[in-house]
Write a protein that binds this DNA or RNA. Structure first.
Lengths: 199, 199, 199, 199
DNA sequence: GGATAAACGAGACGGTACGTCTTGTCTTAGT
DNA sequence: ACTAAGACAAGACGTACCGTCTCGTTTATCC
């Protein structure tokens, strides 16, 4: 016997899934082609065949569209699995290599532009922090916790500090551009972080 | 015939120093008031009494004005001297505390917005890297070199890697906002970087 | 099988008389409140509780709704009966006074806006001419015919010309606003039209 | 003391006469092509090469542009001179024939649309009344005054009433479309108005 | 002292994107 | 079949900012 559909369908024409996907697709294509700034709402509308009014109905700004498209599309593709090699150092090495590769890819430039836009728009900032940065940090946090459990890492170090020491340099180089984002750089950072700088 | 002025004064009316200073002052005031985006060229012109044409004559964009104003004004005020305490760890501690304080101040928000804008504009990027990031890094590089000379720091570590391990976390937290920018955070990062994370 | 109902009820749910009346009422209220332009279809829908689709099903545009509402509501209220005083001059005087009062009332402004909209929309134009102007002219045409029959009016004058001479000035002043729409003006027009302008 | 430049030039770049004329020309072309409603500001901008911002700087709306263009262009061309034949009846006949021809021409449709738009927009209303209707009425007022001076017309009739009796029917037919706008109609109206309707 | 040259203020301008609004159609579920 | 709710495409609206331009004025050096 039916329980009368506890999730009551709201009346009226339902939101068009086709329109949502068309917007996501158009934004995913336009972001690498034009960059975040030159990707205008009008162009998303034109490319997707979804009217501007509809876009503004569901997203507060083109940046919200970009964040959604980035998360749904490009970012998902480049998502790294937890390496879990049995060695924290090796896990970190692989995780940081993945991040370095991501940052130095086309998606990395878009990511940098999203982070940049977040500096001007609190909503984008919150969205990015909650949906992107947090999920990344969860992954590496798992590596950290395993390392502590195995006795490889110093339990008395604040994990936030330890993780920032390893992944901060990557972000630093992404936005300031003063150093390379390579596998070698990843390895050097992990090694130095593990052993320390002092004699 | 005069040889007394080897630097030949160019003919015509000389550039108005008053105008330059008025623009710098107006921009210094408007940046904290409005932020980088909302500070429009028109507003700088209005506030300073300097015409838009003159502004565009001397600076390629409002961002160049902002970088200049930032360097000349706020940044200079918050510039830290080389601590040179005799201990690399203590030097780093003080330098990173200074940076953390700067990042968490009003000027820090503006700095973050300049870094953000640089992600979209190669000229701003270059300007910022050459005039801001580089000068900062010179300072801490001096600390590093003294530490190596005194045998406190491992000579085989790439200085760029070592410095990024210490100052990357600050930039990371500035733009991603996931952790505090406090003296305690500075000390924790320096301590962990010096000693390393592994047992 | 019944043949007793020669007027076969059409199948399906019958048109909601409640909905029709709610639309008429809402439009009657909104027209004076907002004017013809600002009275949007959405607002009629909201006020009446009748969906936009239903409105568009029964009326081709909001202007058709307005014409309907105007005829059913305000115009009916201000409709003048045939005076038939026994004197054509007196009949015209009373008819023109009635029109002047109507034109200078709130309904008169709405009527002017409907006439105005008709200049852009042929359907509104036809609707208005057939349902509003024509019915008015029938009334005054009756006055004319009685006057001719009684020998008060010159039979050789084209009635259309004669009537326009009397009622044209009222419309002219309504849309051009260069003169008053008062009882005195009505009397002056009727007197001058009856006697002529030349010595 | 200088008398050479009594009209002091205002500072700043002077308003571009070229831009003003291009807008006028574009509007003059678009009005007959599209009608008042379909002539959008964007299209005027596109056709004239003058930016939308500039158009909005000098005219409050596209309707103001239309009134200007109409006055400067089409209306000027169709302007009738004062006939002054020595007979008021003949003068009126020619003036009304001119108006009938104008109303039944392409410009007449545009004029009707301007009058229509004026019913919704007080600024257009005032503009039209002051610049179009008034100038027309001045002309026919001159005819009236000459007729009174020559003893052809009754001095005791209010000129506004007399003129509306003659020119009201034309406007009435323009907006209501119930009768022809021909030379014959003009003559019939003038004859009836001069002689009166009563025996 | 007059000519020359560049800088300057004021502000108009073309271009472009923004986010909102209105119109009329369409889609779904309910009556 | 008809309705209510409301999503949707199309496209005009008026505003804002950008960077360039066109004036007429001012301030210096040069002849």
């Amino acid at each position: 016997m039916s329980l009368t559909n506890p999730v009551r369908r709201r009346s009226g024409r339902p939101r068009s899934e086709r329109a949502r996907q068309a917007v996501m697709l158009a934004a995913s294509e336009l972001l690498p082609e034009l960059g975040l700034r030159a990707m205008t709402t009008d162009r998303i509308s034109e490319r997707s065949g979804v009217s501007k009014a509809t876009i503004y109905k569901w997203w507060p700004s083109k940046y919200a569209v970009a964040v959604d498209a980035f998360l749904a599309g490009m970012f998902a593709a480049s998502r790294e699995p937890d390496p879990d090699t049995g060695s924290a150092r090796e896990d970190f090495r692989q995780a940081l290599r993945g991040i370095m590769r991501f940052y130095s890819s086309a998606s990395g430039r878009i990511f940098a532009q999203l982070v940049a836009e977040a500096q001007f728009d609190p909503e984008v900032f919150a969205e990015l922090r909650d949906r992107l940065v947090a999920s990344r940090r969860e992954l590496v946090r798992a590596i950290w916790d395993r390392g502590v459990a195995r006795g490889e890492l110093l339990a008395e170090v604040d994990p936030d500090v330890g993780l920032d020491m390893m992944f901060g340099p990557a972000m630093y180089r992404l936005v300031a551009g003063h150093g390379p984002l390579t596998d070698e750089a990843a390895d050097a950072v992990v090694d130095a972080a593990m052993c320390g700088l002092s004699r």
